[in-house]
Design a protein around this nucleic acid. Structure first.
Lengths: 235, 235
DNA sequence: GAGTGGTCTAGACCACATC
DNA sequence: ATGTGGTCTAGACCACTCT
């Protein structure tokens, strides 16, 4: 663990516990460096993490301030939470595999996944529920070569768990696009939507640390059950 | 302009123009440092910008690679674009001011905006259209003290333009939450939605560089006309 | 002018990937 | 073993804010 991450964790903890209170100024850089036994650049890296998380604001010439915000909502807007762990609590996830086949990529998919048209890919459709409640319909495309021997049993549990822990692949980033469109019969059946009611779709392209595209995935939600949070920080 | 931003701009340009081609390796750090006349840490800062933008991937022990992606979509996922400039092109924005009043903050708003209950705030509702087409219904709350003398005429044009260019306030960050809910009569009238059809809402808390909250804003869109893109990068 | 953050450098050392 | 990125330091200098 890098020192600057350690320091960020410690300072984040002090903000959450109220030791550095909302709206007030943090000790300035030099004092923090002495307290945490590090160099100025290292402290800047640590504090920049908290800036990106939306917890603090730094102003040249003025100081570093804890942001006025409802803390509980804004802690840990980390990558992991945004991805596989978003749906948590003590709820049980069940997955009904609707479709599991290998098809050649058409023009559209080839472009999205940056592969050749005709390359073989898995086409997977799963209806996923939380404690028996319909939650998300996931349409997933994965190049065959990424996961050569995928079994249907894996799909019934966690595909991500298999890819991360069994195949030891690591995710680098996701490109996400959120839109909405009128439901088709398939969504209406699963979510109990009325004709004309839309679903919300999260389109996601997932990259591995190798730079390859792992999957192109469309996650469709009942409009009333979807939520997405993010923090945009200027420059 | 910082040197590392300059370098990032130059390298981004070379990726877009195809001088550094998709899927291939960039020169390694030492060569880049010599080419761009900078130190290793400065080059890292430059390349980290491009990592956050989703253009490249860096792998310790392996190298730096241009990401396999459809470039045109992913260039410049900057803050500005995500905020006021998102709606652009050559379309004309018109704003009908539905409500413009000063009210005391209730409990809910006081918590969202981190002010005292009873503090006076502007309550603004605007129906905004693009080239005459209904686009977004914006419900905005702004503490009175942030913009002491707001005129209705400003609301008919650009509130952001006024705040940024006339008052010289600068935005530091936005906390965004995207949800959907069944439309009320007000949304149905404006968007031409049917009863039971939902809108998509972008809830936004906007912070200034001072750390103060500028506004709490709910932007409601016709579900078929909303789109939100972002890139999540691991650690 | 004093206080405070931002950037840049040179150099050292570490950690991981690939062969 | 070698190549490549990641982290850390000490110190210099710059840029902005506040009063």
């Amino acid at each position: 663990m890098a020192k600057y991450r350690d320091i960020a964790d410690q300072i984040r903890g002090k903000i959450i516990s109220g030791e550095y209170t909302v709206g007030t100024k943090l000790p300035y850089e030099y004092v923090l460096c002495v307290n945490y036994h590090c160099n100025k650049e290292t402290m800047k890296k640590a504090l920049d993490i908290l800036v990106k998380e939306g917890l603090i604001i730094r102003r040249r010439g003025a100081g570093t301030f804890v942001k006025e915000t409802m803390l509980q909502e804004n802690i840990n807007p980390q990558f992991e939470r945004s991805l596989t762990m978003r749906v948590q609590g003590k709820k049980e996830v069940t997955s009904q595999v609707v479709t599991f086949e290998v098809i050649p990529a058409d023009c559209f998919l080839a472009e999205k996944m940056q592969i050749e048209e005709g390359d073989f890919i898995y086409h997977i459709i799963r209806n996923r529920s939380l404690d028996g409640e319909p939650y998300v319909k996931e349409i997933t495309y994965i190049p065959l070569r990424m996961v050569p021997n995928l079994k249907i049993n894996v799909l019934r549990h966690s595909l991500y768990d298999y890819i991360l822990n069994q195949l030891h692949l690591r995710i680098q980033s996701c490109h996400i696009n959120i839109t909405s469109a009128p439901s088709t019969a398939a969504e209406r059946d699963f979510f109990g939507l009325q004709k004309g009611e839309p679903y919300i779709q999260e389109e996601r392209i997932t990259y591995l640390t190798t730079g390859s595209i792992l999957e192109y995935c469309l996650s469709r939600y009942h409009y009333a059950h979807y939520e997405f949070s993010t923090i945009l920080v200027n420059s």
